[in-house]
Amino acid sequence: MIAVDGLTKSYGTATVVDGVSLTLPDAGVTSIIGPNGAGKSTLLSMVSRILGPDAGTASVDGVDVFSASGREVAKRLSVLRQDTHMTARITVRELVEFGRFPHSGGRLTPDCRASVTSALSYCDLDHLAHRGLHELSGGQRQRAFVAMVLAQDTRYVLLDEPLNNLDMAHATGVMRLLRRLADERDKSIVLVLHDINYASAHSDRIIAMRDGAVVADGAPAEVITPEALEDVYGMPFTVHRLGDDLVASYFR
């Protein structure tokens, strides 16, 4: 369980995340949605230790994120950032091997190599393993980073807008991969999403934020409703049921 208590971050007089308290489950897919500037990414960055909070605490399975050693936290919590740009010229396999750093300190054990190989094939990257990361398309690179997170082998995986700049085929591929990780490997996937319909189709739980606070929290059927979405985004929505999916329409 990830427990967040009273996390606050402000820049000058603007409070971006305002005393958010919530718990994230130890399994399933949890999506965080909300308009730009709602504090979704800031919240995730603080739990990821990339940003220091002004107030509040966060813990992962009882380990305090801000005071524990980096390595202890990194064995429990992995993070996939929005930006997949990389200055270092490394191959896909080398990138995935970095995922083992919290466990091995960079000295790969046979176990490490095995889990790197299995992460690569789980993300279907075997045939690209020795390609340079810079030679890959956006979708392939995103999968390479997912494989790195997989090799890190943590119970919790945080992803900040993993579908950014991906076309529909790649976006769906990444979402399916994450869903499979939650179902087959019992991981808890927490991701910030802009596309509410992806959130609706793949999540077990949706958390909606606005102005630095949580305004709706529940199963997709509870959050993907015209009333709730209008409250979050401040614009009219219609919600249709198509097969198993709830699809929100907001284009006109």
Partner: peptide, 22 residues
Amino acid sequence: FARTLDVLGLGRERAITLGVDY
């Protein structure tokens, strides 16, 4: 520090999430 340097080469944010006390 060579192996830590390898990770630091990935950038501050990635180094932190991989457990380096930056």
